[in-house]
């Protein structure tokens, strides 16, 4: 029998709300506990920007792959096995000497999960989401990225249907590096477009 005197403080309100959703949805057979745990493990431990770095490094090293990536990004990314939720329609955009691309989701936080994992806190923040559209050069400067005035800045607004991945410029001094070595230079932020790829010298210092 449950006894009726209180033993402790109730759980926090948010925890109670989530436990209510989960227990009811499991009872109705709409979700399974094991599948929820597996999904959380996947996003905490397996999916992340290292996936995207492999894609970018191959695009730098293999012109045929880059052509495929720019022509049909979702299919070219799937060659690595990087598929799944929020990766149904991905578009890779390439930085050049003339064009710098940067990605945002002005509505919420749409993001290419299979190649970058879940978005960083700043990507989800209202100031980034509004300001990068209005004053992208200022925002890029705050991330330490100064671009010449001659470089056009293009801001891409991700949606629930289309998610963008930036292919940063291949850094100078990287001739002869292997794909694995190149991938070390491809940071998460460079694939969102707020920074450039690391140079081989600065990456070694990390």
């Amino acid at each position: 029998m449950a006894h009726d005197h209180k033993h402790g403080d109730p759980l926090p309100e948010t925890v109670l709300r989530v436990k209510s959703l989960e227990s009811l949805l499991v009872e109705k057979g709409l979700v399974e506990t094991e599948a929820l745990d597996a999904l959380i493990d996947r996003y905490e431990n397996k999916v992340g920007p290292k996936n995207g770095a492999k894609v970018v490094a191959r695009a730098w090293n293999d012109p045929d792959y880059k052509r495929r990536l720019l022509a049909d990004s979702t299919a070219a990314i799937a060659e690595f096995g990087f598929t799944g939720a929020q990766g149904e329609e991905m578009v890779a955009v390439e930085n050049t000497d003339n064009v710098h691309n940067v990605v945002v989701c002005t509505l919420c936080s749409c993001y290419p999960w299979p190649v970058l994992g879940l978005p960083p806190v700043w990507y989800k923040s209202p100031p980034y989401r509004s300001r990068v559209v209005r004053e992208p050069r200022e925002v890029l400067k705050e991330f330490g990225t100064e671009l010449p005035n001659s470089t056009e800045v293009r801001v891409w607004d991700s949606t629930a249907e289309t998610r963008y991945l930036v292919i940063p410029k291949r850094p100078e001094g990287t001739d002869g590096l292997s794909e694995e070595e190149l991938a070390e230079l491809v940071s998460r932020d460079s694939m969102i477009g707020v920074t450039e790829a690391l140079s081989p010298n600065s990456a070694e210092g990390d």
Binding site: V18, L25, D37, L39, E44
Partner: peptide
């Protein structure tokens, strides 16, 4: 709880 809310949403979508 953040992870659980996230996972519930993705699974219902899937």
């Amino acid at each position: 709880w953040q992870a659980q809310a996230f996972a519930l949403t993705v699974k219902l979508n899937e």
